[in-house]
């Protein structure tokens, strides 16, 4: 929507102003309660204390290292999941026999909560970074895979008929109809994979090891360093919001490619 010229500043940005306003208000109330000592610093914290701790951790502590560690684990695992999920999804979605072979196995794996596999993954990969990378991978892989398979199967029947009428070969249909048509589905899978991968990296770092934002949160909790814990929580929340927002934007850009029937 483009703004009409006589729209006031408020009218144009109403959503952002109201949404931002509610957050500012909440932070203000929280800080007021914190300053009034209505909140126990042992079990909770206040915005100013959290901000102070964030600055401290950034300048004096190991926040940069933790961010880099978690970011690397997430990126490696997610890229691996995206590539494997899309490639396997395309193959399984395109070849009917392969789908019949793979379906029960994938369904069983998909239905198993990934957390249940974490101890096993730690046994396989140790408590170093590769166990985290693998947890991210396994968390993000399934949504990408399942959506890609769905996209390959949801070929627009009108487009298929048109392609056939112009004597398109199976390979041409694959390239010109099936693959582009599954792009919006793949993007949905990637968006879900981002969210689950983020959970994966945090949970993975909580379970074992001594680095990363997930470890920071777990350690903060164990040592009643509530400020530190909150810094971690906010970083995770911010990462989730930004990454999901980016993924959604990308998804919307390609929404027109969805089959009509």
């Amino acid at each position: 929507m483009t703004g009409r010229p006589h729209q006031s500043f408020y009218q144009r940005y109403e959503g952002a102003i109201l949404g931002g306003g509610s957050i500012v208000l909440l932070l203000g109330l929280w800080e007021a309660a914190w300053q009034a000592k209505m909140i126990s610093p042992l079990f909770f914290s206040g915005p100013s204390a959290i901000a102070k701790q964030a600055v401290y951790a950034w300048t004096q502590g190991n926040l940069k290292g933790d961010l880099l560690y978690s970011g690397t684990n997430f990126t490696l695992g997610f890229i691996g999941a995206a590539i494997a999920g899309v490639v396997i999804g395309i193959l399984v979605g395109w070849y009917r026999r392969l789908r019949m072979l793979a379906d029960p196995l994938l369904n069983a794996l998909y239905a198993t909560p990934r957390v249940a596999m974490i101890p096993l993954i730690l046994m396989w990969f140790g408590i170093g970074m590769w166990s985290k990378v693998f947890i991210v991978f396994i968390s993000a892989f399934f949504p990408v895979l399942v959506n890609t398979v769905g996209g390959m199967r949801a070929i627009d029947r009108d487009l298929l008929r048109a392609a056939r009428a112009f004597c398109a070969s199976d390979w041409q249909i694959f390239k010109t109809v099936a693959i582009p048509g599954s792009v919006p589905f793949i993007l949905t899978g990637l968006r879900q994979g981002v969210a689950l991968g983020l959970i994966g990296v945090v949970v993975g770092e909580m379970f074992g090891g001594s680095q990363g934002v997930g470890f920071m949160v777990a350690y903060g909790g164990q040592t009643f360093a509530t400020d530190t814990l909150f810094v971690g929580v906010f970083i995770i929340a911010a990462a989730g919001i930004v990454l999901t927002w980016l993924a959604e934007r990308l998804e919307r850009r390609f929404s027109q490619w969805r089959p009509e029937r």
């Binding site: 627009d156 009108d158 487009l159 048109a162 112009f166 004597c167 041409q172 582009p180």
Partner: peptide, 24 residues
Amino acid sequence: VVFQHSSLLPWRTITGNVRYGMEM
């Protein structure tokens, strides 16, 4: 064939769509 539903490829430009049959 000209179908009832235009059945154009949404990821191709208009030129790309007109070329589609020839390309196939």
